[in-house]
Amino acid sequence: MIISTLCWLCFMFAVLQVVAGCSPNPEQKISLEKREAAVPEKKNGKAIRIAVGGMITPREGFAYYRQFLDYIGEKIGQPVQFVDREDYAEINKLVATGQVDVAFVCGGPYVDGRKEFGMELLAAPVAYGETVYYSYIIVRNDSPYHQLSDLRGKRFAFTDPLSNTGKLVPTYMLAKMHETPDSFFGKYSYLGSHDKSIHAVAEGVVDGAAVDSLIWEYANRTSPKFTSKTRTILKSPPYGIPPVVVPKELSPELKDRLRKIFLDAHTDPKGAEILKKMHIDRFVTIDDKAYDSIREMKTWLERQKKVK
């Protein structure tokens, strides 16, 4: 009896060990010992440096900017260095000091850069058939707010202190109502990007936000997870679209070569494919006058500040 019990115990233990050894999922055999060197970092020697500040796509479109920069590199025959900075002011500083050769900037920073250090326009995208964009004041779908005045005392999100649609336009709208962000909103913050502002409104983190119409439209067409939870209560007048700029010191030859690449991109199959993913029809030359409305707005706001 004892022997049979012991035998049974041994059998059970063996079965358990077998069960423990069994794995439900198949494993792919690999060796961690055979080694290989990683791809070295590209040398920055003679690379064209391009900063991406004012994008017309949400963050997920960042990859397409990278592809477009590689496309430029291919066309110009030089490596391209993607320069990324936290805010618009830093990008403007890089352009001002010639640390970047090209920059995608927002309309507001362009007006500032033009005024402060002669930033020059290289080209501008045509998106959704226009070279203009708007500021959308958005709120949550299920919120009781229907006009800007309903957001008095509420939480609001701006994008960047230098952003045109994300700060300047809503500030201008408030100024027309004899208000400032401080006097009108209960609390406001700078979230750094239009995607984050849309996300914040959709999730109820803030009650309202001012966002770039191009980014809202892009997100709404590609992945409306968050935009579908938001509603536009106010659409601003049109403003000059975020342009591509160069420092005024950039050699005219390089400037011309770069401009040509931008303007011809939509005629090149690879370029056209990337532009399509960026929701850009093509690049065109643009006159500085396209940004006069932003300039006037800024001037008016500065005058108001001085009056106060």
């Binding site: 060796s31 290989e36 990683a38």
Partner: peptide, 8 residues
Amino acid sequence: GDFPADLK
């Protein structure tokens, strides 16, 4: 140092 080639 280097990485395992099989992970590529």
